[in-house]
């Protein structure tokens, strides 16, 4: 046969271009998906409310609420100003932000099985590895966007507080801010990857979201409670994603989980370095498991 009908392998070699094509394809459908915007919007709104609005109302009315008991008004205000951004921004990530990002990862991976879109995608050309790498990259772009959007809303909120209270609008050090946003990104990315794995595993968003939330919000908390009296359970909890994320943020902002005013989910079980290592390890392990699953699985 002529050259036209023989296979041109160069055009289809798995590699950077196939991954890039898959990333662009996935970004297009994520960008136009209302569920993605609703989820991200909900996070930004709730984060602004819990991190700033409630605390500011508490501060200005002079009363105490459940999350500010025992804190002096000066401390409270310090956290609400632009200079307090590095400490305030990542506090909601381990439990709250993580849970929402897990939902995001789970719906990105899980819905495609019910809709039959993975089937359609996998008959397009790129290998399963390239397709998955593209989808995970697109998810990562999304999470990075969420981290930056959180920074922007938090800055806007803190600026408003500073102006209202006639306090300094000076920004914190760039290094501190970058570290804070970086940690927030890593924690959210880890939970999103966990959600993606669960969505792939269950092939449905509902089951994976349910399982993931029960794990993150209930089981890990219970295990840490039991760990207080059983040493081996305590050791076990040191390897869990929630402990790792909670410790990473907790150590960075300096937290004492024993006090009643501690933000839920923040821990000091692991050192900062150890927690960072664990989170990065999960960021390698979770996508690898997903890849292993996607590679060998029958797609129906």
């Amino acid at each position: 046969m002529s050259a036209a009908t023989s296979l041109d392998l160069r055009a289809s070699a798995p590699g950077p271009s196939a991954v890039l094509n898959s990333t662009r394809a996935d970004l297009l459908r994520l960008r136009k998906w209302p569920a993605v915007w609703v989820t991200i919007g909900a996070w930004l709104a709730l984060n602004a409310m819990f991190a700033y609005l409630f605390n500011y109302v508490t501060y200005s009315s002079g009363t105490t609420n459940f999350s500010t008991q025992g804190e002096s008004r000066a401390e409270l205000l310090a956290g609400l100003l632009p200079s307090g951004l590095p400490a305030t921004l990542p506090q909601g990530m381990p439990l709250f932000g993580g849970a929402i990002m897990m939902v995001l990862g789970a719906i990105i991976a899980g819905n495609g099985y019910g809709w039959g879109t993975w089937k359609t995608v996998l008959t397009q050309g790129p290998s399963r590895t390239s397709t998955l790498a593209g989808s995970l990259s697109a998810t990562t772009v999304l999470i990075a966007g969420v981290a930056l959007a959180t920074l922007v809303t938090d800055y806007a909120m803190s600026l408003a507080v500073a102006l209202a209270e006639s306090r300094s609008t000076a920004l914190p050090g760039l290094g501190d801010l970058a570290q804070s946003v970086g940690v927030a990104f890593l924690v959210m990315e880890m939970w999103a990857m966990a959600g993606y794995l669960l969505g792939t595993l269950a092939r449905s968003p509902a089951v994976s979201v349910g399982l993931g939330l029960v794990w993150g919000l209930v089981i890990e908390q219970l295990l840490r409670g039991v760990g207080g009296s059983l040493a081996w359970v305590d050791t076990f909890t040191h390897f869990l994603p929630g402990t790792s994320a909670g410790s990473l943020v907790g150590q960075m902002v300096g937290v004492d989980p024993g006090t009643p005013d501690a933000t839920p989910g923040l821990l000091d079980a692991l050192s900062y370095d150890r927690a960072l290592l664990m989170v990065v390890a999960y960021l390698v392990l979770l996508p690898t498991l997903t890849w292993w699953l996607v590679r060998r699985r029958d797609v129906v």
């Binding site: 898959s22 394809a25 459908r29 809709w115 993975w118 089937k119 359609t120 050309g125 129906v300």
Partner: peptide, 26 residues
């Protein structure tokens, strides 16, 4: 290929669904 019914993103327009699929092969 069209295998066992069409599998597309319900929230996207028909055209955007095809644009998404076209991007996989550039």
């Amino acid at each position: 290929a069209l295998i066992e019914g069409p599998g597309f993103y319900p929230y996207l327009s028909g055209r955007d669904n095809l644009r998404t699929m076209a991007r996989y092969r550039a």
